[in-house]
């Protein structure tokens, strides 16, 4: 069997932490190597070159993750990304995070975990942003990163799939690989 490698293109360190702690353990048995490339503040041409290179490699694939932010819908966001990359990116490999990665973090907390952390009850996280996460952060945390790490320690994938549609969609896609 050939050596299989999967690359995740993510915006910044909070996304990297999520991939390392949540996605890598699920995929590690199906890939020989999982790599994360952060693209924030990098010229687009550099990321394009990475994508072109990976496309030319045998048994290597990628996912390009991006927050939907203020885009009206997934299709519009995906079209914007494809257009900015001059069609160098496979639209089926674009993962749109709704609304921001912080929503994916919070989605993994069940009622007990939320209570343990001192986070107030909340329903779905499809509209959650980094501001929401900061607002929900208990005062005993003076570091946002510390809080996010504590969330990941209690992260439940099945709960997250129920609480965030875009996470559920992506997890179903990964399970089908």
């Amino acid at each position: 069997m050939s050596y299989r490698k999967l690359y995740f293109f993510v915006e910044g360190s909070d996304d990297t932490r999520f991939v390392e702690n949540v996605l890598k353990p699920i995929l590690s048995s199906r890939f020989d190597h999982l790599a994360v490339v952060e693209y924030a503040q990098r010229p687009l041409k550099i990321i394009k070159s990475f994508l072109v290179s990976i496309n030319s490699m045998q048994d290597s694939g990628y996912y390009y993750m991006r927050d939907i932010n203020s885009s009206p819908c997934v299709t519009s966001k995906r079209d914007d990304i494809v257009s900015s990359f001059g069609n160098r990116i496979d639209e089926n490999r674009i993962v749109i995070v709704i609304k921001e990665i912080e929503g994916w973090y919070l989605a993994g907390l069940d009622e007990t975990a939320a209570k343990e952390l001192g986070v107030k009850q909340f329903g779905t996280t499809d509209s959650m942003t980094k501001e929401n996460l900061e607002h929900m952060m208990p005062t005993r945390f003076d570091s946002r990163k510390d809080f996010m790490i504590e969330i990941l320690k209690r992260f439940d994938i099945d709960v997250a799939k129920q609480k965030n549609n875009s996470f559920n969609y992506f997890m179903n896609e990964l399970e089908a690989i």
Binding site: G12, S13, D14, T16, E38, A40, D142, S143, R144, K145
Partner: peptide, 14 residues
Amino acid sequence: ISKVVDMAKDASRN
């Protein structure tokens, strides 16, 4: 280094 800078930004909230 990007993580170190991010950490410094995190601390700059307070």
